[in-house]
Design a binder for these strands. Structure first.
Length: 465
RNA sequence: GGCGACGUAGCCAAGUUGGUAAGGCAAGGGUCUGCAAAACCCCGAUCACGGGUUCGAGUCCCGUCGUCGCCUCCA
C-alpha cells in the first residue's frame, strides 16, 4: 500500500514519494503574530502535526519548519496602537503560541524561524531576483516582475489577464504591472527597518517564506503546507520567487487545510469572528479540539460550535473508557484474547489504509472506535486485565499517531491518592452491605465532585479520575 | 462578476477505480445495578432537487437551488 496525498498543485491525490528516500522536508506557514491564536490556527497546527506524526509512524524522518511572521503591516499597526515596540509585541505572541503548541500536544518543529532573524537571507534572495531580472527597484521599493514568470497563477489557477482586469483601485502607479508584488518596502516613520542595498526598509510578506524555506530546508522541499486561504496570493508568490531564484521546482506537494467555520463563516481576525484557543482551553480538554478536527476531512471547512465540542468530548470519553480496568474478579480467557488480538490487528490495517488515503483521519477514527467496541465487549464478557492489555496497547499506539493522549492520567497522582480512595471505597462497601445507601451515595457524590468517578460491578468497585 | 469547494440520518461525519450507505454524539427500548455511572444488546438515512449515461450511481455528465472559501491582510 502506498501513501497518497492530495496535491493542490495538480488537484489530485498523488502517490507520496519524497525527494530523498525516507527523508521528508515539511514547511508550514505559521501565523502572523499580532494577536492571540484562535481555534482556526489550532486546527491548522493539529492537521500538520497529524500529517507529521503519520509520516513518522510510516518510517519517514521529518524535518519540520514553521515560521513566525513578526515583521508585517498588521504587527506594526497593532504595536503602534498600543504604543509598544512591534518586535516586542510579536515576541510576546510568539511566546503564547509556543505555549499553545505544547498544550495542544503538537510535536515541536525543528526550527521556528522569524522574519526579523532572516533579513540577510531575504536581502540576498531579492538581490538574486533583481540580478536575474525577475525583480526591479523603484525609489527604495523592490517589486517582483510577474510578467517574467510564465507559470504565475498555476497553483491558484488564476489567469494573469483577469487578475489585472480585476485589480482594485489604489494600485501603486510605480509598479510595471498591477499584479507585481512587493519584495522590499522602503521604511516609513514608526516602522522597524533594516539597511539594504535599496536603502532602509523591511521585507514584503511573501519573500520571507521563500527565504526561510531555502535557508532551513534547501532549494527543494517535499511538502509545503498552510491554510487554503494562503493559496493566493501567498503561496503563488512564494512559488514565483523561489522557482525564479533557484530555477528548480520549489515544493513537490502543496497541502492545504480547510477553514474552521464559526457560526457558519470562516474564523477570521479581520471580521472578529474568532474564538481564542486559550479561551477554549479554559473549560475544554485540548484533545477534544483535536478529536473535533480529526473527525472530519482536513481539506474541508470544519464545523465548530457548542454541539460539536460536546460531541467531541463525549467521543473522547468513550476512547478513554476503553482503557478502563477489567472487571474485578475476571479471569484470563485465551479464546477471547485471540479474538481481541485479531481485532486489534484488523484495526491497525484499516487505520493504516485510511490514513494512507490522504490522511483520512475520520475514517481511521471509525476503525479505532470499532476496536473500542471489541475491547469493551471482551471486558463485559469477563476478560481479565492481561487479556485486554495487547488490544489496549494497540489503541493507545494508534490514537497516539493521531496525537491523542488517552493514557494521560498521571501515574504519580494515581499512586498518591490511590490508597485513600481505596480506603473510602472499603468504608462505602461496608455501608452498602449494611444497606446504608444514603451515606454510601454521599461518598460517591463527594468523590465525583472531586473528579473521581466510581463504578460498581459484580466483582467490586473501580474508580478513575 | 471571476475561480474553486461542498450539500449523506436530529447533530458531526467516512465513503478515489460506479454494484444495494463506516464511525461518533444525541434520542428511544432492554440487560446489569440497591440506585447510579460505565459497558453490552436492539433501534434510524437511498445520499439537496431535476434530468442523463449505465444492467446498475451517493460515487460519472448536465441543469436548478443552497452553503462556504479565495479574488485585499488572514491558518
Amino acid at each position: 500500500m502506498a501513501l497518497t496525498i492530495y496535491n493542490t498543485m495538480t488537484r489530485k491525490k498523488e502517490t507520496f514519494e519524497p525527494l530523498h528516500d525516507k527523508q521528508v522536508k515539511l514547511y508550514v506557514c505559521g501565523p502572523t503574530v499580532y494577536d492571540s491564536a484562535h481555534v482556526g490556527h489550532a486546527m491548522s497546527s493539529i492537521v500538520f502535526d497529524v500529517i507529521r506524526r503519520y509520516l513518522e509512524y510510516r518510517g519517514y524522518e521529518v524535518r519540520h519548519v514553521m515560521n513566525y511572521t513578526d515583521v508585517d503591516d498588521k504587527v506594526i499597526l497593532r504595536a503602534n496602537d498600543l504604543g509598544v515596540d512591534p518586535l516586542e509585541l510579536a515576541e510576546q505572541y510568539i511566546g503564547e503560541y509556543n505555549l499553545l503548541i505544547e498544550k495542544l500536544n503538537i510535536l515541536p518543529a525543528e526550527e521556528y524561524p522569524r522574519v526579523s532573524g532572516e533579513i540577510d537571507q531575504i536581502i540576498k534572495m531579492i538581490e538574486g531576483l533583481i540580478e536575474k531580472d525577475y525583480a526591479y527597484e523603484v525609489e527604495g521599493d523592490v517589486f517582483f516582475r510577474v510578467s517574467k514568470d510564465e507559470d504565475y497563477g498555476r497553483l491558484s489557477r488564476r489567469d494573469l489577464e483577469e487578475m489585472r482586469a480585476g485589480a482594485r483601485l489604489g494600485i501603486d502607479e510605480r509598479k510595471e504591472d498591477p499584479a507585481d508584488f512587493a519584495l522590499w518596502k522602503s521604511t516609513k516613520a514608526g516602522e522597524p527597518s533594516w539597511e539594504s542595498p535599496w536603502g532602509p526598509g523591511r521585507p514584503g510578506w511573501h519573500i520571507e517564506c521563500s527565504a526561510m524555506s531555502l535557508h532551513h530546508l534547501g532549494e527543494q522541499i517535499d511538502i509545503h503546507g498552510g491554510g487554503n486561504d494562503l493559496i493566493f496570493p501567498h503561496h503563488e508568490n512564494e512559488i514565483a520567487q523561489s522557482e525564479s531564484y533557484t530555477g528548480k521546482r520549489f515544493a513537490k506537494y502543496w497541502v492545504h487545510n480547510g477553514m474552521m467555520q464559526l457560526s457558519g463563516a470562516a474564523m477570521s481576525k479581520s471580521t472578529g469572528n474568532v474564538l481564542n484557543v486559550e479561551t477554549f482551553l479554559e473549560d475544554h480538554d485540548p484533545d477534544a479540539l483535536r478529536l473535533l478536527v480529526l473527525n472530519a476531512s482536513y481539506r474541508s471547512p470544519a464545523t465548530f460550535n457548542e454541539d460539536v465540542v460536546e460531541q467531541a468530548e463525549a467521543g473522547l470519553a468513550r476512547l478513554r473508557g476503553a482503557l478502563r480496568d477489567a472487571i474485578p474478579g475476571s479471569e484470563a480467557d485465551e479464546e477471547v484474547g485471540e479474538e481481541l488480538a485479531a481485532a486489534a490487528e484488523k484495526a491497525r490495517q484499516q487505520f493504516d489504509k485510511a490514513m494512507d488515503d490522504d490522511f483520512n483521519t475520520a475514517g481511521a477514527l471509525g476503525h479505532l472506535f470499532d476496536l473500542v467496541k471489541e475491547i469493551n465487549q471482551a471486558r463485559s464478557a469477563g476478560a481479565d486485565q492481561k487479556t485486554l492489555e495487547p488490544a489496549k496497547a494497540t489503541l493507545i499506539e494508534l490514537t497516539g499517531v493521531l496525537g491523542l493522549r488517552l493514557d494521560d492520567r498521571s501515574q504519580t497522582e494515581q499512586a498518591e491518592i490511590g490508597p485513600f480512595i481505596d480506603l473510602l471505597l472499603d468504608v462505602r462497601r461496608e455501608l452498602r452491605d449494611q444497606g446504608q445507601y444514603e451515606l454510601a451515595d454521599s461518598i460517591r457524590n463527594r468523590l465525583s465532585e472531586l473528579g473521581v468517578t466510581i463504578e460498581d460491578s459484580k466483582g467490586g468497585t473501580v474508580w478513575h479520575t
